[in-house]
């Protein structure tokens, strides 16, 4: 497995990071960022980020608030395009294709790279229409029964089907917070993405709903590549196979989750995961 040396210009840190290669986990790279710099107006938010996202695994991005992990996540499906003053430099590839290429259709990209947000944001529509939203705008299915099936399978994958199968026409906003978040996951799954980005998906939920979502993430790993931003170190340790630690807009350390949490190579990572700062 190839892991880019981080912070190539910074020799001190380069030494500290030693990407241990676990051959048994070697798998293909789904997405990769090379020398990614992001600016909000004059202010630079990300500095030369080099990070690979492994297919069919969960990669968690951790770090203190304002470290740029959400910004990086939003680069992966070009959600930063929505922000006028935001400028992205560098290369981000999905299956070897440059997603910032002029010929690439951002609509198609976002259908392949779905996103789940920090706060559950179901549309003010019925549960059914929330899930059917993506398939409808992308024309994924041709007939009503097909759409019904897709909605059902998406809700099942999101572990919500049994709770809502008798009230698909009720408002999605009437569900509990945890159910709303699973609805948003079902909504993302319904567009048949390859990658699902999750921006602190459990920060607005109670521990029980969080546990449900975490189990769900673990199940989804079989079919999807997942990138999750989280503030909870325990969550990162529980759900992810790989972890990247961001600090002040740079990736300080990146590697196997078990290795990052049991044997961090960088002092800052050590301090952060033991709760000494952040």
């Amino acid at each position: 497995m190839e892991i880019q040396p981080i912070m190539s210009e910074d020799t001190e840190k380069q030494q500290a990071v030693s990407p241990l290669q676990h051959e048994e986990n070697q798998s293909s790279v789904k997405m990769s960022g090379k020398n990614v710099n992001v600016f909000y107006g004059e202010k630079q938010a990300l500095f030369d980020i080099n990070l690979d996202i492994t297919a069919n695994s969960v990669t968690s991005l951790i770090g203190p608030s304002g470290c740029g992990k959400s910004t990086f996540l939003r680069c992966l499906n070009r959600m930063n395009d929505v922000i006028d003053i935001c400028k992205v430099e560098g290369d981000i590839h999905l299956d070897g294709e440059d997603i910032y290429d002029d010929h690439l259709d951002v609509v198609e990209l976002r259908a392949r790279v779905g996103m789940v947000f920090q706060k559950p944001n179901p549309f003010p529509k019925s549960i059914y229409d929330n899930v059917a939203y993506g398939p409808r705008i992308h024309g994924l299915v041709q007939t009503e029964p097909d759409l019904d099936n897709l909605v059902e399978s998406s809700l099942q994958k999101a572990g919500l089907w049994d709770e809502v199968k008798n009230r698909l026409q009720d408002a999605g906003t009437g569900l509990s917070g945890g159910q709303q978040q699973r609805l948003c996951i079902a909504r993302a799954i319904a567009t048949k993405p390859d990658v699902i980005l999750m921006d602190e998906p459990c920060s607005a939920l109670d521990p029980i709903a969080t546990a449900t979502i975490e189990e769900l993430i673990d199940e989804l790993r079989a079919n999807y590549t997942i990138v999750i931003v989280t503030h909870s170190m325990q969550q990162a340790a529980r759900v992810s196979q790989r972890t990247a630690f961001f600090h002040l807009g740079k990736v300080i350390e990146e590697g196997q989750t078990t290795q990052i949490f049991t044997n961090p190579q960088n002092e800052k990572t050590q301090d952060y995961i033991t709760g000494r700062f952040g």
């Binding site: 959600m79 929505v82 198609e108 996103m115 789940v116 705008i137 909504r187 993302a188 567009t191």
Partner: peptide, 8 residues
């Protein structure tokens, strides 16, 4: 954002 995130 939710809608854009789905590729709308």
């Amino acid at each position: 954002d939710g809608s854009y995130g789905l590729g709308a």
